[in-house]
Computed example of a mutant assay.
Amino acid sequence: MTTTTTGTPTGVVPGEPTAPATPGAKSRRSGGHLGSYLLIRFLLIFPTIFILVTTVFVLMRSTGDPITAALGGRLTHDQLQERIHAAGYDRPILVQYWDYLTNLFHGDFGTTISTNRPVTEVVLTYGAATLELAFYALLVALLVGIPLGRIAAARRDQGVDASLRVSGIVAYATPVFFAGILLKLVFSVWLGWLPVAGRASTDAQIAIQRNGAGTGIYLIDALSTGDPSVVWDVLQHAVLPALALGLLTGGIFLRLVRTNVIGTLSTGYVEAARSRGVNERRLLRQHAWRPALVPIITVIGLQIALLLSGAVLTETTFEWKGLGFQLVQFLLARDFVAVQGLVVLLAVVVALTNFIVDVIAALVDPRIKY
C-alpha cells in the first residue's frame, strides 16, 4: 500500500484554511498602504503650518503692536491708541493669538495697514506674477540642470565633468541679486539685447489691458491678444529674471542628477545589463535614468521654497511686481500685518506643493515603502 503525503507550505499552519490567492490581492494591499501613506503625509501639513503660524505670530508681536510699528510718528498718541483699540491689539496676547487662528481658519489673513487692503486681495492681484516667474525659473533650472547633470555623469571624472561641477557650485553660490545685476549689466546695458526691468513695455501693457484677458499671467494675456509683438515683448522681459533665479536652482539639479545617475550606474542590475553587452548610452537611458529621477522630483518640491524666497530679491532687482516685490514694500513700510499674512500664505503653498511632490514620487518609484 502506498501512502502519498503532501507538503505544507512554509508559514501555513496545518488544518487552518488559507485565503485563495487572487491576482489583484497584492495590488489592493499596495493601494491600501499607499492610501495610508498619502493620508499621513497630508495630515502632517497641519502641524507644520500650525508651528509656522505660531512662530511668525510670536516674531511679529515681539516688535510691539503693528499699528505703532507702521504709523508711529505719523499719528498723535490719541489717534494711535484709537487705532490700536479698534484693531484689538490692546487685548491679552493669548486672546489676539486665538482670534488670529480663528480668522485664518475662516480664510482671513488680515488687512494691510499701509494700503488698507485684505491680504488675500494682494495675493490675488500680485500672486500671478510670482507664479509666472517661478514657472520660468523652474523651467530654466530643469532645462539646464538635468541635461548637464546627465552629461557630467556620463563623462565622470573627465574634464567636462569637472567643468560642469564647478559651474554648478558657482551657480548655486552666487547670490541671486548679484546674478541679476550682472545679467542686467551685460545683456541690457552693454549689449542692449534685453530690457532692464519690468514685466512688459508700456505699449504691451496697454495692449494687454485693452484686450481685457486679466489673468495676471502676462504670457497668457499676451497670447490672448493675438499680437506676436506683444508676446515677444513679454518673453524678452522674462528672460533675465528667469535666468537669475533659474540658474541658482539649476546648479542644484546638475549636481543632484550627476550624483544619482552615477549611483544607479553602479547598482547590481545595471552591472548585470552591462555584462550582457548593453552599451553605456542605453544603460543610462533605460536602466539608470528613472531611479535617479525620484530624488530629483522630491527636491523640486523643496526648491519651490527657494524659488519663492529668491523671488523676493529677483523681483526687487528687476522691478517684477509680484508678491516678492510687494513684500519688500510692506517691510519698508513696517506693515507687519501684511508681512505676516504673506509669509503664512506662502508657507501654505510650499506645504501643499511638497505634499503633491510626495504623491508623485510615491507613484513614480515603486521602491518607496508605505
Rank of each mutant, 00 (worst) to 15 (best):
M1H: 13
T4K: 14
T6P: 09
V13I: 13
R29F: 04
G35M: 10
S36F: 15
L38A: 04
L39A: 15
T48A: 09
F50E: 06
V53R: 09
F57H: 04
T63F: 14
P66A: 02
P66R: 02
P66N: 01
A69G: 01
R74P: 11
Q79T: 02
Q79D: 04
L80V: 01
E82R: 15
L94W: 13
Q96D: 12
T102L: 13
L104K: 04
H106P: 07
D108G: 04
F109R: 03
G110F: 00
T112D: 06
S114R: 06
A128D: 12
A129F: 03
E132A: 07
A134C: 11
Y136H: 12
I146M: 12
L148D: 02
R150V: 12
A153Q: 00
A154R: 01
R155I: 02
D157V: 08
Q158A: 15
D161T: 09
S163C: 12
L164M: 06
V166C: 11
A173T: 13
T174E: 01
V176M: 14
F177Y: 10
A179T: 11
A179V: 12
G192E: 06
W193N: 02
W193L: 05
P195Y: 05
T202A: 14
G212D: 04
G214E: 05
T215C: 08
G216T: 14
D221I: 12
P228M: 08
D233M: 06
V234N: 06
A242N: 00
T249N: 14
L254M: 15
I262T: 14
G263Q: 05
L265A: 03
G268E: 11
S275H: 11
R276Q: 14
R281T: 10
L283G: 05
L284D: 04
P291N: 09
I300R: 00
I300G: 00
I300A: 05
L313T: 09
T314P: 09
F318W: 03
F318K: 00
K321P: 09
R334E: 04
A338F: 00
Q340N: 08
V343K: 02
V344I: 09
L352V: 15
L352E: 09
T353N: 04
I356G: 06
I356D: 03
D358R: 04
D358I: 01
V364W: 10
R367N: 00
I368Y: 02
I368C: 03
